[in-house]
Nucleic acid binder design. Structure first.
Lengths: 121, 121
DNA sequence: TGAATATATGAGCAACTATTCATAAATATA
DNA sequence: TATATTTATGAATAGTTGCTCATATATTCA
């Protein structure tokens, strides 16, 4: 029935310093987390993957994924706010494309990571 | 007061085909989403960043982040299950390191992405 | 102008998540 | 063996999220 002492005391002061040297500040960590959060949903990843080689309007994106227009539109707004997709309007049709190359890179690296891990969580 | 027709009809059949060609299947999308989900939290990103240059025990990680041992341990379990960190035991002390190079890459690409985007969501 | 169509969005709900609290498990040491 | 210490974990809870439903907005066309 004792408390943990390690919340007050440090075991390896030198390593703690090294850890603090590379530690992300809270603001950056939050911004970065927001970006990864955008990629942390199967639906959004599928939307992004559908846009890898072609531009698509909301209606067609809904058809590709087999989802409602509303659900797709909500997710696109989020992806847009995080600069992951871009849109252009032509009459009443809105076309979406991937915003920058980093998104493709992130997707590719992520796929490499999971291909190196067989077992499940 | 009309329904949307675009959930039944396709506007650009050729583009829809192109979108389906690169579309991730549900299983892969879910696995990939799990990986990005692990990086979608400021606390976990800070844990990872603390481990960039040094190995650290749970106790010291808690000190670096200024969090409770319990909270840190819970997050480490999640990172471990997704092969993002690895642990080795020495007596009653458990040391954590980053699991593979993909994690560093993902972090780096993510940082590049946010550095290219000034405005907020 | 009025009807049809493509897209966006607010509200609400069910499911998920990050932390805290209490405590268990494992190890070292006296 | 008894105690201290490090780590892990189950339960509970407050906050978040992804979808649906209804509807608003914007644009085209008859």
């Amino acid at each position: 029935m004792n408390q943990t002492r390690c919340e007050e005391n440090i075991i390896h002061p030198d390593r703690v310093k090294a850890g603090q040297d590379t530690l992300l500040d809270g603001f950056t960590a939050t911004r970065l987390a927001d970006t990864f959060q955008a990629l942390a949903d199967p639906t959004r990843l599928r939307l992004i993957s559908a846009l890898l080689e072609t531009e698509l309007c909301v209606c067609d994106l809904a058809a590709v994924l087999g989802m409602t227009q509303s659900a797709v539109s909500h997710q696109l707004r989020l992806l847009r706010s995080l600069h992951i997709v871009r849109h252009r309007k032509e009459g009443r049709i809105v076309y979406y494309t991937l915003d920058d190359a980093h998104v493709r890179d992130l997707l590719q690296r992520g796929l490499e990571h999971i291909s190196h891990t067989e077992e499940e969580a």
